[in-house]
Amino acid sequence: MKKMDKVHLQETELACSDGGEANVDTAEHLRWCARCRSVVAEYRWLGEQVVDALAAAAEAAPVPRPRWRALERRVIAGRRRRVAGWRASAIASVALAICTVLLLSSIVGATVAAQLASPEAVMTPLSATVVVAEGSVTPDATPTPIVSYGESVDAPSTPALGPIPTPPTPDA
């Protein structure tokens, strides 16, 4: 505030202070600064002139006749447009819903039909062949089968693997 005491207040601050709206610091400055006080007085006078000028201009304004019918037409037209808009959006929503249902039903129907038309799935075990290499077996030993899957067509339906042979004793 000391700084403010030495210089004059800004114009905008003074312009705001004409209606008794000055803050404490501004009011204090105005108490002793005649120049700023005179500027505030000018703004007060200007405010009064603005009030008078605006009132006079408003009074002198060439007010046309109210056009109620035109207004009514626009309001009604607006309501109709809004109703038409709602109707159109409702119809569009229903149409969209119907299309969605039809689309979904056709997709689901096609899937079901495809499933009904296809043959029953059968799970068959793969055949296996046991090949025993000659000469590699001791007389007492049970041959170790070499197992290969999926090669023999006329393989027996019995389990492909036999019992695991007992290894020959070192004495034999």
């Binding site: 002139q49 603005v50 009030v51 008078d52 000028a53 605006l54 009132a55 006079a56 201009a57 408003a58």
Partner: peptide, 25 residues
């Protein structure tokens, strides 16, 4: 004076003029 003030108001920037009109009218 009223005419002069009105003419001067026409030259005030639009934002400030709107505020003045709402304040003083």
């Amino acid at each position: 004076t009223q005419q002069t003030v009105w003419e001067a108001l026409e030259q005030v920037s639009p934002g400030a003029r709107d505020a003045l009109i709402l304040r003083y009218y």
